[in-house]
Structure formats: C-alpha cells, structure tokens
Amino acid sequence: MLLGATAAIMVAMVLMLVRAFIGPSNYDRILAANSFGTKVVLFIAVIGYLFGRPAYLDIAIVYALINFVTTIALMKFFRYRSLQASLSHRRVGEEARDG
C-alpha cells in the first residue's frame, strides 16, 4: 500500500514536471514549481515510512517553508522585476505620494 502511495506521488511529480517544461507562460512554471515542492514534502514523508526509518521529517518541514519562499521570490521577480520593492501598502503609499 505504501509502495502504491509512493508510486502515485512519483507519477504526480512527473506530470508536474511536464507542466513545468511546457508551461506556456512563466506563471504556469511557478505554479508547477510550487506544486512540485508540495508533492516532494509528501514524498519525503512517505518514503521515510516505506524504508522503515522516519528520520527525514525535519527535511519535509524545512521543505514546506523553503518552497513558499522560492515561489514568492519567483513571483515577485516575474511580476515586478525588482527584489527590493516593498509589497506592503504603508511604505508603497508614502513613496508614491511624495515620490
């Protein structure tokens, strides 16, 4: 059964890779990368139990966090072409008014 779950997750990862390769717009690729990261979190958790030694769960947690940061960095880069611009309303509002 666990082997079935592992095989299913690997198939899902391959399909997500296909979307990452052909994705017409770059936003599709970010979507594929984000979803691929979440599937990897599940894959790490499952193979921990498949191989009888769940010692990797810290990596699954770390990966759930890092995947979010990468998606935000890519999204901000594609949309705003700037890594230093602030997304919070307060700062942007002041700059826009007195800029």
């Binding site: 059964m1 779950a5 095989a7 299913a8 399909l15 979507l31």
Partner: peptide, 28 residues
C-alpha cells in the same frame, strides 16, 4: 496506509488536472 494511498491518488488526479486545464487560473 489506505489514507496515504488515497492521498497519492488524489495528487495524481490533481496533476492530471493541471496538465489538461486550459488556462492558468483553472490550473491554479
């Protein structure tokens, strides 16, 4: 194990959806 298998099958269905849907928002 059955729940894990169900989760795996659901993620395969999701990936199929991402491949077949027409535009970005439905894939999201």
């Amino acid at each position: 194990m059955a729940l894990a298998l169900a989760g795996g099958i659901l993620s395969v269905i999701g990936s199929l959806g991402v491949l077949r849907f027409p535009d970005l928002y439905t894939r999201l």
